[in-house]
Computed example of a mutant assay.
Amino acid sequence: MNIPHRKRRRAINEPGHAHFLTCSCWQQWPLLNGDRSRRWVLEAMQRLRTRLRVTIWAYVIMPEHVHILLRPQDREYEMRRILAALKAPVARRAKAHLQATHNREWLIRLTTSHGKRQVFRSWQPGGGYDQNLWSERPIQEVSDYIHANPVRRGLVDRPTDWIWSSARSHAGLPGSLLDVDKVVLD
Rank of each mutant, 00 (worst) to 15 (best):
N2I: 14
R6L: 09
K7M: 06
R8H: 12
R9C: 01
N13H: 06
E14V: 14
P15V: 08
P15H: 07
P15L: 08
H17I: 05
F20W: 14
L21M: 06
C23H: 10
S24Q: 12
S24E: 07
W26C: 06
W26E: 04
W26K: 13
Q27S: 11
Q28P: 09
Q28T: 10
W29H: 15
W29V: 00
W29D: 06
W29F: 09
P30T: 02
N33M: 02
G34H: 13
G34S: 12
D35V: 13
R36Y: 14
R36A: 10
R36V: 12
S37Y: 14
R38Q: 12
W40I: 04
W40A: 00
L42F: 02
A44R: 00
A44T: 00
Q46L: 13
Q46E: 15
R51H: 12
R53Y: 08
R53L: 10
V54R: 01
V54D: 01
A58M: 08
A58Y: 04
I61G: 00
E64G: 02
V66S: 01
V66N: 05
H67M: 03
L69S: 02
L70M: 08
P72V: 08
R75H: 10
E76R: 15
E76V: 15
R81I: 03
I82M: 03
I82P: 08
A84R: 15
A85W: 04
L86C: 06
P89D: 04
A91Q: 10
R92I: 05
R92K: 13
K95W: 13
R104V: 15
E105A: 14
L107Y: 09
I108M: 11
T111H: 02
S113N: 12
S113D: 12
S113Y: 15
G115C: 08
R117I: 12
Q118S: 09
Q118I: 06
F120Q: 06
F120M: 09
R121Q: 08
S122D: 01
W123A: 03
W123G: 06
W123F: 13
Q124S: 09
Q124R: 10
P125L: 05
G127A: 09
G127P: 04
G128Y: 14
G128K: 10
D130C: 12
Q131F: 08
L133I: 09
W134M: 03
R137T: 13
P138A: 04
D144L: 13
D144F: 04
H147W: 15
R153Y: 04
V156T: 11
V156I: 12
D161N: 03
D161F: 00
W162S: 01
W164N: 04
W164G: 01
S165Y: 11
A167S: 14
S169E: 02
S169L: 01
S169P: 03
S169V: 00
H170C: 01
H170I: 07
A171E: 05
L173H: 09
L173A: 02
P174C: 07
L177E: 09
K182V: 13
K182H: 11
V183N: 05
